[in-house]
């Protein structure tokens, strides 16, 4: 279930719960954007989070690697409690990969340099090793031939696959996807989703904010519905889509499935 490249001793030490969120509350100014969020994500679990825009799902995801600060509650990632200590934050971020809606590739670096930047400067890897790892993952997302190009030359779908490869190069235990396909042209959505399905079969822990319900049905262990900053419903995909319990969930599913 767990990724092959980490060694066995490490594996035992790691707790069964990958992400633990308890009593999380966040305000943007006076606006209560996350309300009493409690969530445990098991190791290797894949959760798809959906909900109307402004429901706080992206903010929740961005709290997990501390791109956003919060006011009350605690988040523990891989046994490391997140607080204001920059060392703890960096330790968590090394372990958590993130893929953004707008890719956020570094335009002044080639695809290969995008992928090797963090391994070289954060993991202190020799350049040659970092490049080998990068090429491995670029092959994995099926664009090794673009390695020397600059991101601006790539299509949206290719850029998003590079972004996934870039995150994977850090060998993360947990991957966060923040609406990875919603900025893409329709014909490019599939190539990115296929890549993500491939990842899912590796057993990596995934939290995905997405409205791709086909993807949710195919790979999710649980589907979570958020609205107005609260978690309204969590269920296994089959039950979630067949018998949504909460009225808001039903309404939402009706709207996006048609």
């Amino acid at each position: 279930m767990v990724q092959g490249s980490t060694d066995a001793a490490d594996e035992k030490a790691r707790p069964e719960v990958a992400v633990e969120i308890a009593g999380l509350n966040k305000w943007f100014g006076e606006f209560h954007v996350l309300r009493d969020i409690n969530l445990n994500v098991a190791r290797g679990e894949r959760i798809v989070i959906c909900g109307p825009s402004g429901s706080g799902k992206s903010t929740l995801l961005r709290c997990i690697n501390h791109l956003e600060d919060w006011q009350t509650g605690r988040i523990v990632v891989d046994g490391i409690e997140l607080n204001d200590d920059p060392r703890q934050i960096v330790a968590v971020r090394r372990d958590v990969g993130m893929v953004f809606q707008h890719f956020n590739l570094f335009p002044h670096l080639t695809v290969l340099e995008n992928c090797t930047l963090a391994p070289i400067w954060v993991r202190q890897m020799p350049k040659r090793d970092a490049e080998a790892v990068a090429m491995k993952y670029l092959e994995r997302v099926r664009i090794p031939e673009q390695a020397e190009k600059y991101p601006a030359r790539l299509s949206g779908g290719q850029q998003q696959r590079v972004a996934i490869a870039r995150a994977l190069c850090m060998n993360p235990n947990i991957m966060l996807f923040d609406e990875p396909t919603s900025a893409l042209d329709p014909e490019m959505v599939k190539e990115v989703l296929d890549t993500m399905v491939g990842l899912a079969s590796d057993g990596i822990t995934m939290l995905v904010v997405s409205h791709e319900m086909g993807f949710a049905r195919q790979v999710a262990d649980r589907v979570m519905f958020m609205a107005d900053g609260q978690i309204l419903e969590i269920n296994e995909p089959k039950a979630f889509f067949a018998h949504p319990q909460h009225e808001r969930t039903r309404l939402f599913l009706q709207q996006i499935l048609h």
Binding site: N25, W27, G29, E30, H32, R35, D36, Q71, D228, Q230, I231, L232, E233, I234, N235, E236, A239, Q245, H246
Partner: peptide, 13 residues
């Protein structure tokens, strides 16, 4: 499985 029965009140920071 989780289902919220009653909506939370909005609190001030």
């Amino acid at each position: 499985f989780y289902l919220r029965q009653t909506p939370l009140v909005v609190l001030l920071p």
